[in-house]
């Protein structure tokens, strides 16, 4: 097949110029700060708190999306109801809706004087300008991932698997937990990983609703922006590299787990 040199040349050149060299500059800049300064910054209370918030809430949001993603995928694959196709299409909205739009919409809903926030305020529940608000935004942007990875696996599952289980005397619950869900698990994990990866670096939809209170509702990407605004390039780079390292380690771990699961389930 001809054209390998041309195609390969274009993609590698573009990849280097747009992605790899800039990322190398990031690592270089961070390394230039020296190990002591890096450690001091990375373990400063405000950075640690922001990392905890970003990673903790991203994992929590991905977990919520696993539960509801499974339910939504099940409902879309198994039941026929009015508007099913529109709902199916709508699941992808977070892919298409700019994050800033989602951000101000969520703020308008959950701010203390917002449409829902005002209803919750008398109950003493605060969502907007708290970590709960961040969670709402992260659930929103990660919503399609689990649905879209699980849906095709559920749809292609042989009907006879359930019939065989039922004829062997299994209850519906036992059939679902023992026969249907195990083969879906690797796809669930893939969806979880994608949703987490997206949420952990999310910025646009979060900053409008987070309140951005240091040590309470300040996310790690915002810290980078703040450092940049103070022209502290090295500090911004250090936080960026720490974020990337942590998320790559987590994603790698999740991918290894997923691969092991697939092997175990005989998918090889």
């Amino acid at each position: 097949m001809p054209g390998f040199g041309l195609g390969f040349g274009i993609i590698v050149t573009a990849l280097s110029l747009v992605v790899l060299i800039p990322l190398a500059a990031l690592v270089l800049k961070a390394a230039g700060a020296g190990p002591e300064e890096i450690w001091a910054l990375a373990t400063s209370p405000r950075v640690l708190s922001a990392l905890r918030i970003s990673f903790g809430l991203a994992l929590l949001a991905a977990a919520v999306n696993v539960v509801f993603g499974l339910i939504i995928a099940w409902v879309l694959v198994r039941y026929d109801f009015l508007g099913r196709r529109i709902i199916d299409a709508a699941v992808d909205l977070p892919f298409a809706l700019p994050t800033a739009v989602a951000g101000i919409a969520l703020a308008a809903l959950y701010a203390p004087n917002g449409w829902i926030g005002a209803l919750l305020a008398p109950l003493g529940v605060k969502v907007g300008y708290t970590p709960a608000g961040i969670l709402m935004a992260l659930i929103f942007i990660g919503l399609p991932f689990v649905v879209r990875t699980v849906q095709p696996v559920l749809a292609e599952m042989e009907a006879e698997l359930e019939e065989a289980a039922a004829l062997l005397g299994a209850s519906r619950w036992k059939t679902i937990t023992g026969v249907i869900l195990p083969p879906v698990l690797p796809a669930v994990l893939t969806g979880f990983t994608l949703a987490f990866a997206r949420a952990v670096g999310e910025y646009g939809s979060v900053i409008f609703i987070a309140g951005n209170i240091p040590m309470v509702s300040e996310i790690a990407p915002l810290l980078i922006v703040i450092r940049l605004e103070q022209f502290d390039y090295a500090g911004a780079a250090v936080i960026g590299v720490v974020m990337l390292l942590l998320s790559f380690i987590l994603i790698l771990g999740l991918n290894l787990l997923q691969a092991a699961l697939r092997r175990r389930l005989g998918h090889v």
Binding site: E158, E163, A164, A165, L167, G169, A170, G178, G266
Partner: peptide, 29 residues
């Protein structure tokens, strides 16, 4: 009904061992 059925494509549970497959109906009681 206690029906033993063998499907055309067998539909063994592929995430279970042979023993777990055979024991499935007994454990489901």
């Amino acid at each position: 009904r206690r029906i033993g059925m063998v499907f055309q494509s067998y539909v063994l549970f592929r995430h279970m061992t042979v023993a777990d497959n055979i024991a499935f109906g007994l454990r489901a009681r």
